[in-house]
Amino acid sequence: MKIDHVHLYVNNLEVAEVWYKEVLGFVRDESLLFWFTQGGPLVLKNNEAALSLFERRHQSPGHTVAFTIKPCYFSELMKTLSSRAIPFTVSDHQVSMSVYFEDLAENKIEMTSYEYHEARKNIQSYYGKAFI
Rank of each mutant, 00 (worst) to 15 (best):
E14M: 08
F54S: 01
M78R: 06
F34N: 07
R84I: 09
D29N: 15
L53Q: 05
T37A: 00
N12S: 06
L13C: 00
H93T: 05
H93C: 09
A85W: 02
V43E: 14
L13A: 03
A66S: 06
T64L: 10
S60R: 15
M78K: 10
W19Q: 13
S83T: 04
P61N: 08
L77K: 07
L42K: 09
D92Y: 02
W19F: 15
L13Y: 01
F74R: 09
V65F: 03
L51K: 06
T64Q: 09
P71C: 02
L8Q: 02
A16W: 03
A85F: 13
H63A: 07
E55V: 06
G40S: 12
D29S: 12
N47G: 06
Q59L: 08
H7T: 03
A66V: 04
K79N: 13
N12R: 11
A50Y: 11
L53W: 08
Y73E: 06
A50T: 13
H7W: 11
T68K: 12
D92A: 02
V10N: 01
R84W: 09
Y20W: 14
D92C: 06
T80K: 15
L42V: 01
P71W: 01
P61V: 04
S60F: 12
T80Q: 14
V90S: 08
H58Q: 13
N46T: 00
S60A: 15
L24R: 03
